[in-house]
């Protein structure tokens, strides 16, 4: 029962309350790591984990956190979670930890995590907070993966490292017809423009979201 009652906690952030395009949270990381689809996916999974667990922890502590220092408490909870995971990975899965080390700083500074702690987990029960965490990180993941997909495809002509458009040096595939990769897509400014276009598409489909 409860599962279906709260399902909007998962579905809302996917569209009409998307953390990136509507709530304007977690932009920095969406720009920094989307030049490659693989990095976008890894970052999405990391945020899914941290936000899911973090939301539950904060929600469990919501009645004992003093309101004056709540921001410090929230930041320390995220930072501790991330550092613990980082240390454990360094000891037992060193190669994996090297791949993830880039993301550690980005996760701690990711305002999507702080934003959801403050806006939701501080006022809701653990299960609902958990669903909210999962929903928001999925909404975040969706945008990251769309942006990563287009930037990698148009920028380097590959997807997850595989050459889907042919080889630019041997001139196979579409490169045989004179197509060139748009290296500009790999630069961060184009990530901004891509997100801008996603917002444009989303708001033309749902006019209720248009700002005046």
């Amino acid at each position: 029962m409860g599962l279906f009652k709260d399902s909007n906690l998962i579905t809302d952030p996917l569209a009409d309350n998307n953390p990136i395009t509507i709530q304007v949270l977690g932009i920095c990381s969406a720009l920094a790591i989307t030049a490659e689809l693989e990095a976008s996916i890894v970052m999405s999974i990391a945020v899914l984990f941290v936000l899911g667990v973090g939301n539950v922890v904060i929600s469990l502590m919501r009645n004992i956190i003093p309101s004056k220092i709540r921001i410090i408490v929230q930041l320390i909870v995220v930072a501790t979670l991330v550092i613990i995971v980082d240390l454990v990975l360094k000891a037992f899965a060193y190669q994996l930890s090297k791949t993830l080390s880039v993301f550690v700083g980005l996760i701690i500074t990711n305002c999507i995590i702080m934003g959801r702690f403050e806006a939701f987990a501080l006022a809701n029960r653990p299960w609902r907070s958990f669903l909210d965490g999962i929903g928001n990180s999925l909404g975040y993941a969706m945008i990251l993966i769309i942006v990563g997909f287009f930037r990698e495809l148009l920028g380097s002509g590959t997807l997850l490292g595989m050459e889907v458009l042919g080889n630019p040096i041997d001139k196979t595939g579409v490169y045989a017809f004179g197509y060139e990769n748009n290296g500009f897509m790999l630069l961060a400014p184009m990530a901004l423009v891509t997100v801008g276009i996603i917002i444009w598409v989303q708001r033309s489909r749902n006019e209720a979201l248009i700002e005046d």
Binding site: I64, P66, K68, I69, V73, I76, T80, I83, L87, A91
Partner: peptide
């Protein structure tokens, strides 16, 4: 109850101790 100064300070001290202990233990053990 959670707005009192004494509670805030107690909470902060306890949290620093707990977090510090966990991290220091993990860091030195690993």
């Amino acid at each position: 109850r959670t707005d009192k100064n004494s509670y805030t300070i107690l909470f902060a001290v306890l949290m620093v101790l707990v977090v510090g202990a966990i991290l220091a233990y993990l860091a030195s053990a690993l």
